[in-house]
């Protein structure tokens, strides 16, 4: 019984001692531990476990051993923080394994990486052709970082000259056939607008399971009946078509009219309308309803 009490007290003391030590050693994710960190941690745990229930052993002996395993990793991490050579020695260097689509065989051998290892790592980065890679580095942490050739990169909006839009979070404005007034207010819209939109696409409020509106004012609805095709408002596309049609008509009038003065005016108006179409086209194309 006395032994049990002793083990209880010891364990509590050692628990808090370990807590303090781990705080001293600092914050590092388990996955980022270097091998020596890992070994030290296990050893510390082992010593602590031994101390906590092995009552035969002297506390002092165990503690002095524990101190060494805490102090040395602490010293190493301190040195690594302040000296580059120590950092290099402990963590190793990043190694270039692919340069301009060519595999650096010597470097691969240095880090003991087989072709299979390399290909696997590349595939995990969604790269299947070595030729697509401009530059690949095996980081000190063991992860492969890949820079693809510029013609293999995905284009971004700016590359395609699509105007940027501010995307606020979409709001769920209809839930279970009921209007969520709070969300509607957050979206700067009113129930009248919502009902008008529903009427435009020919859907009853009570049939809507979920209705979501984005910052562009597009309304998406999901109906209770999944077999019904979801009507999509074509208001935006229709407006764009109407503008284009009007523009074409104006050009036609310019051709048809006999009077020189009228001809000039129609041509000018057609030109102005063309400018309008060019301006709003990016915002009217695509997108769901509206």
């Amino acid at each position: 019984m006395e032994g049990a009490v002793g083990a209880f007290v010891r364990s509590i003391v050692i628990f808090f001692v370990l807590l303090v030590f781990t705080k001293i050693l600092g914050k590092r994710e388990i996955s980022q531990l270097s091998f020596i960190d890992f070994v030290s941690a296990i050893t510390m745990g082992d010593i602590a476990a031994n101390l906590s229930y092995n009552l035969e052993g002297e506390m002092a002996k165990g503690f002095s051993s524990l101190m060494v395993w805490v102090f040395l990793p602490f010293l190493l991490s301190y040195l690594a923080l302040h000296f580059k050579w120590m950092r290099r020695f402990l963590n190793g260097n990043a190694v270039v394994v692919i340069r301009q689509g060519k595999v650096m065989e010597d470097n691969l051998r240095k880090v003991r990486y087989s072709i299979d290892d390399l290909m696997q790592q590349l595939r995990q980065r969604n790269v299947f052709h070595v030729a697509d890679v401009e530059f690949a580095v095996l980081e000190a942490s063991g992860q492969l970082t890949v820079l693809k050739k510029s013609d293999m990169e995905q284009p971004i909006r700016r590359d395609l000259s699509i105007p940027s839009e501010i995307r606020n979070e979409p709001h769920v404005v209809i839930e279970d056939g009921h209007i969520n007034h709070e969300a509607l207010t957050k979206a700067n819209l009113d129930p009248g607008w919502l009902l008008a939109e529903l009427e435009r696409i020919g859907v009853m409020l009570s049939n809507v399971f979920l209705g979501q509106v984005d910052s562009q004012g597009h309304l998406y609805v999901d109906l209770y009946d999944d077999n019904l095709p979801v009507p999509v408002s074509t208001h935006r596309q229709a407006t764009l078509a109407l503008l284009k049609q009007s523009q074409a008509s104006l050009e036609l009038f310019a051709l048809q009219t006999g009077k020189v003065s009228s001809k000039g005016q129609f041509e000018r108006l057609a030109g102005e309308l063309e400018e309008v179409v060019r301006q709003v086209q990016p915002f009217l194309q695509g997108g769901g309803g509206g």
């Binding site: 105007p163 839009e165 501010i166 607008w193 910052s215 562009q216 208001h235 503008l243 009007s246 709003v280």
Partner: peptide
């Protein structure tokens, strides 16, 4: 008439959208 309708729609879109550039 078509232009008037399109113009009204454009004004409506302007009111609806929260995106400044749009």
């Amino acid at each position: 008439a078509g232009l008037k309708s399109a113009q009204a729609s454009l004004e409506q879109f302007a009111l609806q959208t929260q995106d400044k550039s749009a």
